[in-house]
């Protein structure tokens, strides 16, 4: 076994890449859940984003336009979920699952003629001299742009939820939709906007997969990332900053186990792969056990159907 080849810097850089798709998707889902809606269709929205972004990036040659298209695609498909759950009052769990099935199929159909193509290369930050500083350079100053953007999105969501009136209203809708409605807030409109934001973010996360991390289009390429994003929201106990921690931890475990293997360590892969989920359960239990703190984080109306009867 040779662990000297394990470079912490390289490890961190690659775990950030591995974590970014789930990070972006999870921050979107966090906003959705904060508004009181549980959308289990993250996987379906991610893969739609992956293919929309890929098609547009290939056709226009611009990854930036690709990312925009991915957000539009993710938001568009989440709109189906929004209409069904908010106007037709369908069950959110079932609708989310149906959305995943629909999204996986639709993406495969759309992508039929896009397998086997290389997308245009997405840029990385490259500041003369600074990006070349050992350790700090690769660690902070030479990622691809989307990694910085993903962190900015998290900051933005944090600011919105905790420091703005809009965020307050959104949280109110998730906490007690009847009371929010009585106060004159448009619960349904708020939730639809939250759902579409969630869709846009899932789409963006998916496009990061098809344009940067892998980068190519193949059917079913999200391979369960959407479900991990869902776990991540819980792990983060609905706190934006903790999404970063959680995503890097989740991504880190995968990257670390691959690296340990490459270094020659004989590790029980299956058991190691369970750990993020077990840790999430433990976090959830610790949080839930303290009733006072739960009420501050977990939206009380999560998954409940709202219909204004007045």
């Amino acid at each position: 076994m040779d662990f000297s080849a394990l470079s912490p810097v390289a490890l961190i850089v690659s775990l950030m890449v591995a974590a970014t798709p789930i990070l972006i998707a999870a921050i979107g889902e966090l906003v959705v859940e904060k508004s009181g809606v549980l959308n289990l269709g993250v996987e379906g929205m991610m893969i739609i984003g992956a293919i929309c972004g890929f098609i547009v990036a290939v056709e226009t040659g611009s990854p930036w336009l690709g990312f925009l298209a991915a957000m539009a695609g993710g938001a568009a498909i989440s709109f189906i979920f929004a209409v069904l759950t908010q106007y037709m009052l369908t069950n959110q769990v079932a609708t989310g699952l149906a959305l995943t099935m629909f999204g996986l199929g639709l993406a495969a159909l759309m992508g039929h003629s896009y397998a086997g193509i290389k997308p245009p290369k997405f840029g990385t930050l490259d500041i003369p001299f600074i990006s070349d500083i050992p350790v700090i350079g690769p660690l902070i100053f030479s990622h691809d742009y989307m990694i910085y953007i993903s962190l900015m999105i998290v900051a933005g969501v944090w600011y919105f939820l905790t420091r703005t009136r809009g965020g307050l209203v959104l949280r109110a809708a998730g906490e007690n939709h009847d009371a929010a409605h009585a106060l004159g807030y448009k619960v349904i409109r708020i939730r639809i906007m939250a759902i579409m934001f969630g869709g846009a973010m899932a789409g963006l996360g998916g496009a990061y997969l098809s344009l940067v991390r892998v980068p190519q289009w193949t059917e079913g390429m999200t391979a369960g990332a959407g479900w991990i994003a869902l776990a991540l929201v819980v792990f983060a106990s609905w706190k934006p900053w903790r999404i970063i921690l959680g995503a890097y931890l989740f991504g880190g475990i995968t990257v670390l186990q691959l690296n340990l293997q490459a270094a020659g360590a004989n590790i029980p892969v299956a058991y190691l792969s369970m750990t993020p989920y077990l840790v999430t359960i433990i976090v959830l239990v610790i949080m839930s056990a303290d009733k006072k703190r739960t009420s501050l984080n977990a939206p009380a109306c999560l998954g409940r159907i709202f219909h204004a009867s007045s």
């Binding site: 549980l38 776990a231 359960i281 959830l284 239990v285 999560l302």
Partner: peptide
Amino acid sequence: ANEILVSLM
């Protein structure tokens, strides 16, 4: 603890 999330994990 929310059973939706625990059972999913």
